[in-house]
Design a protein around this nucleic acid. Structure first.
Lengths: 174, 174
DNA sequence: GACGAAGTAGAGTGTTCGCTCTACCTGCGC
DNA sequence: GCGCAGGTAGAGCGAACACTCTACTTCGTC
């Protein structure tokens, strides 16, 4: 991915995160990307592809934020992972999970559904593995999803509950 | 709410649940409601109000499905509540929570955000109370939200995890 | 059987949308 | 200094959109 593509993906992600997937027109997206309409369409030949480009970019950024940019893929406790997820919600995702929002905006789009599934399963898989205990990725997914969705409703209380549930689940599977 | 209003709300809810909030045009909504455009606008004078009408209708239907239509507001175990939530997801909400989808489609709409918040807090409140133990509504919210979101990704595995987490949380707060 | 309330069908309106196209500018290798 | 790859600005197009309007029908009441 070259420099121009990164700049465009960055702007698109920001625009969709702020305004949702329905509201921004292609001209809004052009402004957010900071390029001409012609160039935008060169890198993302349709509005649908602009959405996919933004989500792929966000997936990488999310993994970097939650698990660290390095290949340090293990040794992070579930507790710390949940802290980082909450921090992501606070700093980047005040409107909720962008992948769920994308799927909600176009429920029949199979490509989007695939992206959502790949994103969520990679996240829960990595969180479970790096936690180092025998907790099931399914439990991890329910906890992370619960935290992510409940965050916008009750913030710190949601984080506290998610951490308590995680500790209980870990204690049982250890 | 008279008969015509109920019929319209029902059709609107179905249309939004199937197609999301961005895709259906007002003409699609008219067809789903089974009335003329004129009548539709009489009961819901703008597209935004059609969305609100559908969500209020869905809130009532959800409460009825999960907690029973009667005033039997207590005595239902958390385990049974989670079963009913999973059943709702399977039969009615294959595309995920409609309230989150609505907010995602218009992140700046404060009225929609209020509806989401009222819906979620009433659900977790009632689930916690009717469970009869001292479990915190925040824990319940994280578990129900986690189940709701993870359901579309892993179905029964999500239900199993949610139930396990609920049992652990109940055991600790008993 | 006249009347008003409440429904229907469907054409019309101005706007906005996604997308394309033409015309121009700029930096770089040979 | 010429050509070209790759960028910019912005007008233009046909379709779709939310919403309104006119004209007609149905039905219950007195």
């Amino acid at each position: 991915m070259n420099e121009m593509a990164t700049k465009i993906a960055d702007g698109l992600e920001r625009a969709f995160a702020m305004q949702g997937f329905a509201a921004p027109s292609v001209e809004d997206l052009r402004d957010a990307a900071g390029v001409s309409l012609r160039t935008l369409y060169k890198y993302a030949p349709s509005r649908d592809l602009m959405i996919r480009m933004a989500l792929e970019h966000r997936h990488q950024r999310y993994l970097g934020h939650v698990f660290g940019d390095q290949n340090r893929s293990s040794g992070q406790s579930l507790d710390e992972t949940l802290d980082r997820v909450a921090n992501w919600m606070q700093t980047e995702a005040s409107h909720g999970c962008l992948f769920h929002a994308a799927v909600a905006s176009a429920p029949d789009d199979q490509k989007l559904r695939q992206l959502l599934e790949a994103h969520k399963s990679e996240v829960s898989q990595r969180a479970a593995v790096s936690a180092g205990c025998d907790i099931s990725p399914n439990d991890v997914m329910v906890i992370i999803e619960g935290l992510t969705q409940a965050w916008s409703l009750s913030q710190d209380a949601a984080l506290t509950s998610a951490k308590r549930l995680a500790r209980l689940a870990e204690a049982q599977s250890a």
